[in-house]
């Protein structure tokens, strides 16, 4: 295994915590795991906050508690096209400015209600100049839901997943189903 691959694999295991100097000698280093995205730790933290706004913590853990941001970045880095990646990064880079323009503050300084309203606005924003921003947010939302619901935490502690789903039943009365109600 070559050094770069070894580093990348290690980085995937550790959630991208390995830092390498960024190519443009800017002040911040970039996370090794997402080689195509060139994500800095502060960008990673911002995505974590956005994911945590989409699925906040409560009785059941929230997105950031289980590092859904790492899953989001792995997926965008590995499984999305270059155009989608470019849109994601442009939207991400413009997000703080969008927050200041709409709410007068950086995202970090907003309370949960303000954060939610900002993200909902952004998701529905049809303005041409905010196209990448809304693409970034809808990708982030979709991947937050996927990453959260398919996480080890959810599938072992909250809604245990079974590899053996049981014998097929072709006519189950919905009224007879009493699923356990879970509250977040």
């Amino acid at each position: 295994m070559n050094r770069r691959l070894a580093l990348k694999n290690l980085a995937l295991i550790s959630g991208g915590l390995i830092l390498v100097p960024s190519c443009d000698f800017s002040q911040e280093e970039i996370l090794e795991a997402y080689d195509k995205l060139k994500i800095t730790p502060s960008q990673n933290a911002l995505i974590a906050q956005i994911a945590d706004t989409i699925i906040p913590p409560g009785k059941i853990k929230g997105a950031q508690d289980i590092s859904v941001q790492d899953f989001i970045l792995i997926m965008v880095n590995d499984c999305y096209s270059e155009e989608q990646q470019a849109s994601f990064i442009t939207g991400l880079n413009g997000f703080e400015a969008y927050s200041k323009n709409n709410k007068g503050k950086k995202f970090q300084r907003l309370d949960q209600a303000e954060r939610e309203s900002l993200i909902l606005n952004g998701l529905q924003d049809k303005a041409e100049e905010n196209k990448d921003l809304s693409t970034f947010l809808s990708m982030t939302k979709r991947l937050t839901i996927q990453g959260f619901m398919s996480s080890e935490y959810m599938q072992t502690e909250v809604k245990p997943y079974s590899l053996i789903p049981g014998a097929y039943q072709g006519a189950v009365l919905i009224s007879n189903l009493n699923p356990e109600q879970l509250h977040g």
Partner: peptide, 10 residues
Amino acid sequence: IGMELKENLL
């Protein structure tokens, strides 16, 4: 999004 979404997903 937020708690409403989380409740729905759960």
